[in-house]
Nucleic acid binder design. Structure first.
Lengths: 198, 198, 198, 198
DNA sequence: TGATAAGCGAGACGGTACGTCCGGTCTTGGG
DNA sequence: CCCAAGACCGGACGTACCGTCTCGCTTATCA
């Protein structure tokens, strides 16, 4: 009696082919990793996947949305949470994040986000799943530690979170300094100084 | 030994036209502010400026470089330094920076940077002049204050600088939170906690 | 031996809808007269008629056949036979024919015929009903007059008929001279000179 | 002082490539003879000729114009004028004409003409060069014979010409009777009856 | 009277071709 | 020797239709 009102649209007509969708995402992902964002054209994806261009355009409005879908499709969003206390957990997460973004893929994610229509629903989903999921995981770690009384959070946690995760994208996009493990460690060290309770 | 390093090649033929260069930059700037980065094509700039495409390609390798040149051309890189002590100076600078980037122009700068070849000399100049100049100004403020004994800097100042300036680009690119004056103030407040000397 | 050849298959299942057929032909006819042959696509007919594409393809193999069916559906093939003697009857028929073809519809008939598969059974029916019916009516008039002894027919009447009716399509297709009533009269005059008996 | 006003445009910029033009026409001609008018697409011509689509569209507005250009390019418009007197000359011309059109090419010419925009300048040139040149040659033959006093022309020679040349296109397009040499002979025979002077 | 079979609309599918935009290059005549 | 103009070839765009194929629904005949 609970989920009877769930979406049972029973739409007429031939349903969209899940196989076509999967082949498109696979092809887009391959092109992205092999040739880069600049080569991810709808034409190339259609040719590589064997799916017609109109079929692609039926689901995605342009190459940017397709790129976001491909980047999301093979992404769990999970991070190694490496320990019980805040410092080790946050450090593990930051190292994992930086390792994930310090590759070609990281730059492609940045380019994709920069090129995307910021108001599209697709873009919002991409932001939440790919960009902000780490930020939310970090927020959870901080809130738990604060609940345990280990730390004192500032009134505006969002700013602190941006100061932790923003620098990763800053270096990724600007490239003035390397993205490496010691960068992760240093950010965590400074952040923990801020929330040191005493 | 004085003017040997001067550039007096006395090359034969007609010299490059400074007027053509200026018209191209003007047209590129106008297109950028009116239509956005996506419409800044060499074709459109040539048509609007009345300059031939080859003339454009002689100076800039592609539309990205042209966009960077246009964005640099009308940019002094100067910031209002609003006071004598660190907090007011840093706050004034951050507010000024955020005000400058919290517009369409800011997003175009991010898109341009994301699309540019990261190894190009042009891109490096753009980074230094448009992106990193604020960061270097901030570094100067911090170093001066440390020299006065007002603050204690961490061993790696670069990380602290990235935690101050990275969040601006993070919000600019990701758009999850607004870029406003209170954001500037909050960042400065947290940063100053880190460097509090006692 | 009487109704064995009748089509009484009494097939099971839902019979084809005569209403769908009528709506398709109506829509095709409307598109043809409003937008021309180039706009007569199966897609457009389906959309305008509210009939599904597969239903259309069940009866007609392509847009050409559909166009021919639409052009045949509103066409009686009857001509005003305006008099008792050969000259007036032939003149009346030619004037009527030219009036019928000297419109947009005439050109569409020519385009349809040119685009159709010449070996299709559909095309043959279209030719006989729309193109050649006038020629056969003319043949009947000539044979009757010859039977009355008014004229002398050449050994190959087909060539004479082609010389009477061919020029109409010639001008229709090539457009070098107008299709008007005096053209009808002049053709009849020359044709009658040929068969003048004495 | 005479041809100074001739077209010496001295246009700036790179001139259109005659080689590209020739390759396009060659490819179009080959496709026309090998696959037929229905397969003559701009896409296919571009692929076969190695010329870019925009280059093709710069010269021809659509596939029909391209087909007409290809059909004109390999066409001298000359007919064997087989003799000194009217009957043999006209017979030779008609046989030659029918032989030229009683092939696949003939049907393609008809289809091309039917599909073409009747008001385009291109179409007019095609009509004059490919369709009506034979008619004008026939007019010349008749006028010469009339000048010699051999025949009596009707007041409207155009109608007579249409009755001679129209039947060829009639049979070509409608296909109800074969296009052969005896058809040519019969048409000439009947036409000469009309102009018999006595 | 109820099963079952065929036709129905809707609509996605893989495709082909369209006509256009822009990229980056090349070739002119003119300054 | 550079400039403007402008055509070149090529790659990709996003759209229109093609003709085919599932769908779930409707309508008829036959068991």
């Amino acid at each position: 009696m609970s989920q009877e009102h769930m979406s049972l649209p029973k739409r007429r007509g031939r349903p969209p082919s899940q196989m076509a969708r999967a082949r498109v995402l696979k092809a887009a992902h391959d092109i992205l990793t092999e040739d880069g964002f600049g080569r991810l054209t709808v034409e190339a994806v259609a040719a590589k996947s064997g799916v017609g261009k109109p079929t692609i355009y039926r689901q995605w409005a342009n190459a940017s949305e397709l790129a976001m879908a491909a980047l999301m499709s093979g992404d769990t969003g999970a991070f190694d949470e490496g320990g019980t206390n805040l410092r080790s957990a946050l450090t593990a997460q930051m190292r994992s994040l930086i390792q994930a973004f310090a590759t070609t893929r990281g730059r492609q994610i940045a380019m994709t986000l920069a090129a995307a229509d910021p108001d599209s629903e697709f873009t919002k989903a991409f932001r939440n799943q790919v960009i902000l999921s780490s930020r939310e995981a970090g927020r959870a770690l901080l809130l738990e530690a604060a609940a345990r009384g280990e730390i004192m959070l500032p009134q505006d946690v969002d700013v602190l979170l941006d100061m932790i995760y923003g620098p990763v994208f800053y270096r990724l996009l600007v490239g003035h300094r390397p993205l490496d493990a010691s960068f992760a460690d240093n950010i965590v060290a400074i952040a923990l100084e801020v929330v040191a309770s005493s």
